[in-house]
Amino acid sequence: MTTVPLARTGHHRSEVGPVELFFDLVYVFAIIQLSHLLIDHLSWTGAAQTAIVFAAVWWGWNYTAWAMNWLDPGKTPVQLLSGVLMLAALGMAITIPSAFGDGVWLFIGCYLFMGILRPVFMMVAYRGQRLSANYRMLLLWTLMAGAFWIAGAALSEEWRLLLWLIAVLVDYAAPLAHYRIPGVGAAPMHTWDTDANHLAERNRLVFIIALGESVLLMGGAVVEQGQLTGALALSLLVGFASLFVLWWNYFALAGPDTSGGDSSTGALRSAYAYAHAFMVLGAILVAVSIELRLTHDHLTPASILITTAGPLVYLVGNILFLRSRFGSLARSRFIAMGALILITIGALLLGGRLPVLVLSVAVLAVTATLAARTARRRLA
């Protein structure tokens, strides 16, 4: 087999290189921007726009992480590629607040530039190899989705949301369809030789970034209040406990343990490309809900829904992850989701009569109980 000069080799293949960590710094800013986009547009339309923008931001990070699964981060051309992709990701992050407004062309321009540059680079780096043919099919699907991204940008905002939703569905359906185009070819999952340990570490790191956003929002919200009162300190304590329990559920108890489990590329695709999208989005929603509860004295329907949506969305991803890697039904997660739905209904019925702290403690009780139950099972 022909040697690929830029490929990862040897026993260091699974290591995350410094240039990968450097690339992730942009996503600290991107997640902050996503959080503020939702905070500034607390409506169903704002939530839909945030979800679409998050889907694009996540897919840009996800495909870059997968490309680095095969590229040696110590090689100069790979480092230059990462730098260019990082600049494009920064352009996307800057325009997140105006992605549905004046910044539309820069947002999709940077996204599509990343989507085209990555596969072209991989096709050249792995020319003559199966991976090059795979990336050719990936590029064709990216171009198909790109037509909807561009059409959405060209038309009015009323059409933009619908067309960009179609673009997201095309992008996310590509791996599920094995990048198949009738009469042209396909790239089945078993032809992608992936490293489970590297992908797990990359996704752990980006989840830490999402959790870090909660710390930034909590600290900023407290500073803006000017004085740390007893009530604010109690709310901060509950918010931090909620964040810590989420970390515990992910890393200490239900995180991506790569020892054992299904390491086929199809399973890794579900566990990291899709399941982690839900878990990272859940962490972002938790950050937004903490900020809202620290800065508002009463509950609104929007703040109630975001408070329970964070752990709900995270648990959807957690269930998908455990199902993909270990074939577990994770019944305890379904029970926790049911409890959160009941809390949501009760809080909406009570409306503004329910104290903010009571809702926070109720949600914390569910997630903490789940963590404690899983801890007992692991110690048994």
Rank of each mutant, 00 (worst) to 15 (best):
T374N: 02
L163D: 15
R293F: 10
D297L: 13
R136F: 08
L350E: 15
A271I: 02
L379T: 04
W247R: 04
M137A: 01
C110A: 14
G115I: 11
I96D: 13
I335N: 05
T45Y: 05
P175E: 02
R202M: 14
A375H: 02
G10W: 00
S303M: 08
A254I: 10
L37W: 10
I290Y: 00
G146S: 08
L305K: 05
S214N: 08
T95F: 06
D257W: 14
T95G: 11
A273V: 03
L357I: 07
H296R: 05
A99V: 15
A241C: 04
V361A: 01
P175Q: 03
P301S: 03
V223Q: 07
G183L: 01
H12P: 05
M114L: 14
A267V: 07
S14T: 12
H36T: 08
W141V: 05
I31D: 11
R8W: 01
R333C: 09
G185E: 00
T142E: 08
L6A: 14
F326L: 09
L350H: 10
R373Q: 06
L281T: 05
A233R: 07
Y27A: 08
A200G: 15
H190I: 14
L305P: 00
S82T: 15
V184C: 00
M123L: 09
W149A: 08
F278G: 01
A365Q: 01
A347Y: 03
L71M: 13
A267R: 10
L268H: 00
H276F: 12
L87G: 13
V313C: 03
N249D: 10
V124K: 14
T374Q: 02
L131I: 03
Y274E: 02
I52D: 07
H41D: 03
A254C: 10
L205S: 11
G219L: 11
I150E: 07
R118W: 14
A167Q: 08
L320C: 02
L364H: 01
S35V: 06
P5R: 13
W70E: 12
A55I: 01
V238Y: 05
F100I: 12
F244R: 05
F278M: 01
